[in-house]
Structure formats: structure tokens, C-alpha cells
């Protein structure tokens, strides 16, 4: 972790849903252009933590957050306009959620709301984004068709293309393959592998093999805390904490 640039860091981050202390004292430093996997059993707070990074928890009532989240050394909750923040930190959700409009309009949605109107520019962004998301070849002849007609895996890649279209620096992925079949999952994993060269990716996953396959760093969450965080290889080969080992070897979770 020496010479790498730290993209996102948290300091004593806590999150409460009403009385429920869901995220506890998280201190984590996430490297640029790396894939960081967050693993842990259901309800361990990893998705909730993920959503503090682009402030998606703002939507939920009764949420209280203490501590700090830094993105490029600026405080996410104080120094950023939320629009600017979410433009730079994109998000892919658990369930593919393309809008009920054409494939083209889905990808062009982000650029359009951020003020791009020229058709040539939009055409180019759409093509580029779909290419980067490895979807262009499959959909180039039916860009005007409704996105809901795509398969689940294609929909999820479309959602990734939609995020790429606004040129984010960080992409948060909240269990992006949990609703997909193995083949579609594999495609998304390949895609993540490609994207890590240009983007900082933080991915929540239930699937430990997936974390082992695609991530550089892994953080193991349990009961809202980070039990262990480090190089993926190390976490999976020689975990320091007994609980990490138990989880990874499938003894609970």
C-alpha cells in the first residue's frame, strides 16, 4: 500500500438505523485503480457501508452517520455537492435496474442530465460506454429497443455502461452478480477485470470465490465491523483472524 494513491478513506465511520448500530468504527483506506472486495455474511453492514460512500443512505429516513468519509482528501458529507459526488462515484446495484426506456436512452441518461445535448457527442458516449461494458456487439443493432427486453446479465452490463457514461472515477458495486446466472456472472467478472485499469472499484459480494478471483484487496465485515482488511491473496491464504478463516472456509455465514 506504499506508493499507491488513496482514493477513498474513512475515519471512525459509524452508521445507525434508528437504534441499530449497523456500521461500527470503520477505518479503511481504499487504493486507486484497484478492486476492493467487501465480504461478510448477510446483514454485516457491508452494503450499508458501501452506500455511505456515495451518500445513497441519505434517501433512508432515521439514518445517522458519525465520523468522516474522504474522497480525494475532501469530506464526502461536507465538501461535495451531492450531484458532483455521485457523478464521480458511480454505483451498480444488486438487481439490474435499467430504466424502462430504450438502450440508447439508458446510457445517454447520465450525460443528458449533466447537460450534454449534442447528438453526435451523445452517440459517441453511448457507443464508447457500451463498448467498455462489453455490450456493444450484442446491442448495436437494437439501440432503440427497450432495455427491459435484455437478459439479466445484459441489463447489468447496461447498468455498468450507464455508469461509465458519466465518466466516474470510482464504481461501487453492490452484489452486482447475485441475481445473475453463472455465465452472466463470469462476463461481469471479466468486465470488472478490464475496468480495474481505469477505475477504482469497490465491490460487495457474497461469493468468496468471486472476491478471490477479481479483487486486489479484501475487507471482511462482521457485525458492522471490519475484522480484517488486506491483500486478497493474504486474506484467503493466511488470514490473521480466526473469524476470517472460519468464514472463508465456510464454517459460518
Amino acid at each position: 500500500m506504499n506508493n499507491t494513491h488513496i482514493k477513498i478513506a474513512t475515519k471512525d465511520l459509524n452508521l445507525f438505523y434508528g437504534d441499530n448500530h449497523a456500521v461500527k468504527n470503520i477505518n479503511i483506506r481504499i487504493e486507486e485503480k484497484n478492486v476492493t472486495a467487501l465480504i461478510g455474511p448477510s446483514g454485516c453492514g457491508k452494503s450499508t457501508f458501501l452506500k455511505t460512500l456515495n451518500r445513497m443512505n441519505d434517501l433512508i429516513p432515521y439514518v445517522r452517520i458519525t465520523g468522516d468519509v474522504y474522497f480525494e482528501d475532501l469530506d464526502v458529507y461536507k465538501d461535495y455537492d451531492i450531484v458532483e459526488l455521485r457523478k464521480r462515484i458511480g454505483m451498480v446495484f444488486q438487481k439490474p435496474n435499467p430504466f424502462p426506456m430504450s438502450i440508447y436512452d439508458n446510457v445517454a441518461y447520465g450525460p443528458r442530465i449533466h447537460g450534454i445535448k449534442a447528438k453526435e457527442t451523445l452517440d459517441e458516449i453511448v457507443k464508447n460506454s457500451l463498448e467498455k461494458a462489453a455490450l456493444w456487439e450484442e446491442v448495436k443493432d437494437r439501440l432503440k429497443q427497450n432495455a427491459l427486453g435484455l437478459s439479466g446479465g445484459q441489463q447489468q452490463r447496461l447498468c455498468i455502461a450507464r455508469v461509465l457514461a458519466v465518466e466516474p472515477e470510482v464504481i461501487l458495486m453492490d452484489e452486482p452478480t447475485s441475481a445473475l446466472d453463472p455465465l452472466a456472472t463470469l462476463k461481469i467478472e471479466d468486465l470488472v477485470h478490464e475496468l480495474r485499469n481505469n477505475y477504482t472499484i469497490i465491490i460487495v459480494t457474497h461469493n468468496m470465490q468471486q472476491a478471490a478471483r477479481i479483487s486486489d484487496q479484501t475487507a471482511f465485515f462482521l457485525h458492522g465491523e471490519i475484522v480484517e482488511y488486506g491483500a486478497t491473496e493474504k486474506i484467503f491464504r493466511v488470514p490473521e483472524d480466526k473469524r476470517t478463516e472460519d468464514y472463508i472456509t465456510g464454517r459460518f455465514g
Binding site: 456515495n54 445513497m56 434517501l59 451531492i82 450531484v83 458532483e84 459526488l85 455521485r86 457523478k87 458511480g90 454505483m91 446495484f93 438487481k95 435496474n97 435499467p98 430504466f99 424502462p100 426506456m101 441518461y109 447520465g110 443528458r112 442530465i113 449533466h114 447498468c159 450507464r162 455508469v163 458519466v166
Partner: peptide, 27 residues
């Protein structure tokens, strides 16, 4: 309208009004 549509739009940096008029109403 599924909350996922709204989340998708907001996560792209759309404002609440943009989300309403460009995603929720069409949906």
C-alpha cells in the same frame, strides 16, 4: 414505480426533480 429506478437515477447524479420528470413520470 420501483424504488430501484429512482436509486439508479439518483446514483448517476440526477437531482430529485430530474429523477421525477425523466424517470418516475415516464415509468
Amino acid at each position: 414505480v420501483p424504488i430501484e429506478y429512482k436509486e439508479g437515477s439518483l446514483a448517476l447524479g440526477a437531482s430529485q426533480l430530474q429523477t421525477i420528470f425523466k424517470v418516475s413520470i415516464p415509468a
